[in-house]
Design a protein around this nucleic acid. Structure first.
Length: 766
DNA sequence: CATGGCCCTG
DNA sequence: CAGGGCCATG
């Protein structure tokens, strides 16, 4: 039960426990309300400073008592969600289990079985307590007598907290009995020396110092990191010996510290985040604890573990309390239902962390996609609901109305009072595809027009597409028509298709993000699934070999969220350790702060993705690129490189067009008898032509899109280009030095909106 | 200054 | 075929 692998299982329930009820439609105000706590509210972060606990034996006790006082002074009159406390307790328990594991390791060295047994017993007790708590929660929730129930809840919770605290203290004592051969003071002195700035007994000073560096600035951040760290920690527990692990951590610690020193004091938030990260990074070990050298590991290992343990316990309890408090403050701030507030990363869409980060991202980079996406979901769902209920809008293609309703998908971070918006409907470029080219059938799924037009000949003057041609090149593929609602919540009851499983191997990133816990993504909100039903990419997903593209980007914005965070922090190459080298070329980055998915540079993966994107857009704006490469840290260089990519793509494209056009002209000239027919056939770009083969080879080398999956639209565009080239050459316009410009102009208007799936960070498997 | 196109190179 | 350099354009 308490095997290390259970840690994962143990932690997943709490992820699930709150997410399902969190569909944004149910909580209209959630994503609008600033969920992060009101600025200036002190909470008890100062109690949470990690150094405080381990450095003095009474640390935790002090913290707890202070916390208690704090709680009582606030009197906690507002309702408190049992669930959150439970969550906190679970986490505390997790921590304890981790600690327990550590202890097991130590135990093996110290062979103190008795203590171990006691410890296990205690842990079990806590567990049991937790279970009871959970049961009570359910009872209480179902009871419906909110008011009384809450009051009682609070009482019970308080009691339980007390009990937990006491238990933790007891545990502490036991641990210290076992490992505290050295006196606390000695330990402290030693550490002070290591820290080289502390005047022996100055607890206050120490606390202050710790406050500056290690206090988690935002619980949300801490939580996020915490989870990641837990995972990492647990992971490492499985594979690496503790001491190895600790040494690694130590190294990272050093790096971290260096970086922090480098960065100096600019950016309080960064510092804070770093601090909390640092803390968690070393699994609760205080900085400097491991500076002592490596020889006497076994000797001091016990002590250190005890310290780590103590820290873990202390922080866990403190966190629980802080959670409660935070919850309390939030309850007073907004009247949203308790369930709406969750501190688990998995609902980051509705928690303050996400929101904050979104905003931070906004502030720092002006990127709005990430925060928007969250809202989009809600909006989509709302809209869906609206359709179901009111049915005021006609089902089916609604792009025009949408667009009128939605001025600029990505332009502005809309104010919280979200109107119905559908930013996902398409990238900004979609406007290019207005009916300014009436002669060109706009076949792209998301380019549906108010009235379905019959297919019009591609080439205005000379050539009419023949039946065969239209059957191959122009046939409205079932997919394109069926997904005509591509970027829109489709007709009223769209049965959410089953989530494609292969999703997971789209990129290792997913594996590492949350799939670790639940590969099946059971917490998917329905609104998210709607993407699947309405996304043109379904077309491709249905192909066996097409790994269902990156819906996870939406499903699990934590990826991009990490990206935002890293972005905020301005991670440099030196700060990140390139990890997961063999992972499909993905952008898995191990930074000091955890796994990050933000790529500093561009990988072959990105190139592949860009090529696939070329099927849709030949002239992506830099904004589009930024939108659809959320895992790329865009700087001038990267941006221009990517632009350059597309420039190269175009170049190749046009070269081929010209080549084939010239060939066609030659053919036409040589076999003038069959001119007409020959020319017609030459100017086709159906899927069985050489030109198509070449293009596909180039942009879809690994056949991520199976044959036939390449967007029809692209073939049309290619055909247009080919014919333009042909006619230009035929009429001798190519003598003009810039004869291609006109063609470019035409082609650039034929860009299609990119499927939402491309928003996913990562790499298309192919 | 950003961007795109073209030419050229390795 | 990716990318660098150069130039034109806006």
């Amino acid at each position: 039960m308490d095997s290390p692998s259970d840690l994962f299982d143990d932690s997943s329930p709490q992820i699930r426990s709150f997410t399902p009820g969190l569909s944004s439609a149910d909580l209209p105000g959630v994503h609008t309300a600033p969920a992060f706590r009101a600025p200036g509210f002190p909470l008890i972060h100062h109690l949470l400073q990690p150094g405080g606990g381990p450095r003095r034996i009474g640390g935790i006790l002090t913290a707890n008592l202070t916390t208690q006082r704090h709680m009582e002074s606030r009197s906690l009159e507002e309702e408190v969600t049992v669930g959150h406390i439970e969550q906190g307790m679970e986490r505390a328990e997790e921590r304890m289990i981790v600690a327990e594991d550590d202890l097991t390791e130590v135990k093996r060295k110290c062979s103190d079985t008795v203590l171990m047994a006691e410890w296990s017993q205690d842990v079990m007790k806590v567990k049991r307590m937790k279970l009871e708590c959970r049961q009570k929660d359910k009872e209480v929730e179902e009871g419906g007598k909110r008011r009384e129930g809450r009051r009682r809840e609070r009482e019970e919770l308080k009691e339980q907290l007390e009990a937990a605290r006491e238990r933790l203290q007891a545990l502490q004592e036991k641990v210290w009995k076992a490992f505290g051969e050295k006196s606390e003071k000695e330990e402290k002195k030693r550490k002070c020396l290591n820290e080289n700035g502390c005047d022996g007994d100055g607890e206050g000073d120490e606390e202050m110092a710790e406050d500056e560096e290690d206090v988690p600035g935002e619980m949300y951040d801490e939580e996020d990191i915490d989870t990641a760290e837990m995972e990492k920690e647990s992971f490492s527990l499985l594979s690496v010996s503790h001491f190895d692990n600790f040494h690694k951590r130590k190294e990272q610690l050093h790096k971290d510290r260096e970086r922090r020193i480098d960065k100096g004091r600019d950016g309080d938030m960064e510092g804070i985040m770093e601090g909390s990260r640092l803390w968690l990074e070393c699994g609760g070990l205080t900085r400097g604890d491991w500076d002592g050298g490596t020889e006497d590991e076994d000797d001091e290992g016990g002590q250190k573990f005890a310290q780590a343990l103590k820290l873990e316990l202390g922080s866990a309890v403190a966190r629980v309390i802080d959670r409660v408090l935070r919850l309390y403050t939030e309850m007073t701030d907004h009247s949203s239902p308790p369930a709406a507030i969750s501190f688990h990363p998995s609902d980051r869409g509705h928690d303050g962390g996400k929101e904050r980060e979104g905003w931070m991202g906004l502030l720092t980079r002006g990127r709005v996609e990430e925060p928007m996406k969250e809202k989009e979901d809600g909006d989509r769902e709302q809209q869906l609901k609206k359709f179901k209920n009111g049915g005021s809008l006609p089902p089916g293609p609604l792009r025009c109305s949408e667009q009128s309703d939605l001025p600029m998908p990505l332009a502005v971070h809309r104010s919280p009072d979200t109107r119905k918006t559908f930013p996902l409907l398409g990238p900004p470029l979609s406007t290019n595809l207005s009916s300014s080219h009436p002669s060109l059938p706009l076949h792209h799924p998301s380019l549906t027009r108010p009235t379905p037009l019959a297919h019009t000949p591609l080439l205005p003057p000379a050539s009419q597409p023949k039946e065969t041609s239209s059957s191959t090149s122009f046939h409205q593929t079932s997919s394109s028509s069926s997904s005509s609602s591509s970027s829109f919540p489709a007709p009223p009851p769209p049965p959410p298709p089953p989530l494609p499983l292969p999703l997971l191997h789209y990129s290792m990133q997913q594996l590492f993000s949350r799939s670790l816990h639940h590969p099946q993504l059971p917490h998917l909100a329905p609104s998210r699934k709607d993407y699947l039903s309405s996304d043109p990419f379904l077309e491709f997903s249905s192909h066996a070999s097409f790994p269902p593209l990156p819906f996870l980007g939406h499903l699990d914005p934590s990826l991009t969220r990490h990206g935002v965070r890293e972005r905020e922090r301005g991670v440099r190459g030196d700060g990140s350790i390139r990890g997961g080298g063999g992972m499909d070329g993905g952008e898995l980055y191990l930074t000091a702060g955890g796994i990050s998915f933000l790529s500093e540079g561009l990988s072959p993966c990105h190139l592949k993705k860009a090529k696939l994107m070329f099927f849709y857009t030949r002239y992506p704006s830099s904004n589009t690129l930024k939108t659809y490469f959320p895992d790329v840290k865009f700087n001038r260089c990267v941006t221009s490189q990517m632009i350059k990519w597309f420039s190269n793509f175009r170049e190749f494209f046009y070269i081929q067009m010209e080549r084939f056009a010239r060939q066609a002209v030659r053919d036409a000239l040589t076999r003038d008898g069959a001119t007409r027919l020959g020319r017609e056939s030459q100017l086709r770009v159906s899927r069985d032509t050489e030109l198509y083969r070449i293009l596909n080879m180039h942009y879809n080398k690994s056949n991520v899109y199976q044959v036939g999956a390449v967007p029809e639209r692209f073939i049309e565009v290619a055909e247009v280009a080919l014919r333009e080239f042909y006619s230009a050459i035929w009429t001798g316009r190519d003598s003009d030095p810039c004869w291609k410009k006109g063609i470019y102009k035409i082609i650039c208007k034929l860009d299609s909106p990119l499927p939402d799936a491309f928003r996913m960070p990562g790499c298309p498997v192919g």
